[in-house]
Design a protein around this nucleic acid. Structure first.
Lengths: 235, 235
DNA sequence: CGACGGGTTGAGCTACCTCAACCCTGGTGG
DNA sequence: CCACCAGGGTTGAGGTAGCTCAACCCGTCG
């Protein structure tokens, strides 16, 4: 998966319209990103905004990014958070369809879209990697749709904490000690509830001894089974 | 866009694991689908279910399909509807992540995934077409997220009707006369509200002379400007 | 004809929202 | 060094949009 052996040189008689490397280097997306320039941004700064021309794809190196859309009257829906390792800005559209904003100081690797496109045009493995990443994004959006469309506030918070826990596990970090880099407003706008409801729900879970809330930015899950029950609608 | 001239034959020394055509025929996805076998299904029948092995990609020829996930306790979230021309089952996952069910008698063209994958492996334009289609799906999911996460019931219904109207326009059909092949339950499970609220909201819009409801399966938009106002939160 | 699926309408309830007060923490500047 | 302030979080009280439960209508199908 890290490397593959096909060193493909396209026929020189076709595709005259695009500049292309004489010899294509079949690196994976992750390998390309490892070599990409680093950009540092402060909390609240935008990586890009809705309507911006989509010039780059980014991988989060450290920090956290919120992807969100804003309605004319100010209501905001966070479509997802991007954490270290996540790639953002993949959509096929010419223009970005949502805002990407740092929720804390963040470092990003930046890869030009033109490069991505030209590599994808000659390297099918690379193209498939992009497709796979976008497919994961879609799955995440579907998960969130189930949550915002059907679940109660308590179920939403429980689902959210469990998703964070599973992500931690995938990255070989603690399944029970969960860092929350975003504010209550972010969590609310992600789950489609108000900050007050987020807060009240956290204290309710604390009173039920399902979580511990040492600081507001860090949750310890005390009973993950109960949390899973809650997420799926036990009372 | 309809055809392109690159007839690429991969080097014979690589990719021994997959059967591949001696000479690849560079047809677009739509052209492949036009030649694909037709499948007819009845209302309420599944095209595929969550967890099924993802063997085919489908294009709706007539009828309508709901894509949805169901929670253990029976709550259902419709993630989207697929109408004639739409392609479903594109995700990169081995297994389907949601159910696809006909809301009325429907005809589908079926294309084997193995074919799709092998064509995408040698035809970058085709791969890009797939990527673009998936990207549109993601945009649709994001639109729906904004709706279920932030909008009131009236705004949801207005947004829904406007989306139907715009789709009609794209297909050179009436922007004001809207066919609703799905039930009130489907609309409710799509927008994250109950059937009663759907019904009440339709009658409210009728009383405001914004829509006409001759039959319950067919809406005429009387004032599309007002509807747009409502969708974005005018009172 | 009766049963059934789909839709509408009414009455009451409740989960969540709104508005407001208050707390805590960290940063800034006098 | 401390006062002040701003941003973020919690908690309370009251209001309400949408849910639940129920009755009823209509068209279709066996």
């Amino acid at each position: 998966m890290l490397t593959h052996s096909l060193a493909y040189t396209p026929p020189t008689t076709v595709m005259p319209q695009t500049a292309r490397p004489e010899r294509h280097d079949p690196r994976s997306l992750q390998e390309h990103l490892a070599a990409a320039p680093l950009r540092k941004i402060e909390a609240k700064q935008n990586v890009f905004a809705e309507g911006d021309r989509s010039t780059h794809v980014y991988r989060v190196e450290s920090g956290a990014i919120s992807l969100h859309r804003i309605m004319p009257d100010g209501r905001r829906q966070i479509l997802g958070f991007a954490y270290p390792g996540d790639v953002i800005g993949l959509g096929a559209s010419e223009l970005h369809r949502f805002n990407a904003q740092a929720v804390k100081p963040t470092q990003l690797r930046c890869l030009r879209r033109s490069l991505i496109d030209s590599v994808a045009r000659v390297d099918p493995e690379f193209a498939q990697e992009l497709f796979h990443a976008l497919s994961l994004e879609l799955a995440g959006a579907h998960d969130l749709l189930l949550t915002t469309g059907q679940r109660s506030a308590t179920e939403r918070i429980a689902t959210f904490l469990l998703a964070m826990s599973r992500r931690n596990q995938r990255h070989n970090r603690s399944a029970t000690l969960i860092d929350l880099p975003m504010t209550r407003a972010d969590i609310g706008d992600f789950l489609g509830i108000t900050i007050e409801t987020v807060s009240r729900t956290f204290t309710k879970l604390r009173q039920l001894d399902i979580i511990d809330l040492a600081q507001s930015a860090s949750v310890r899950i005390l009973d993950i089974d109960d949390l899973e029950q809650l997420a799926e609608g036990a009372q």
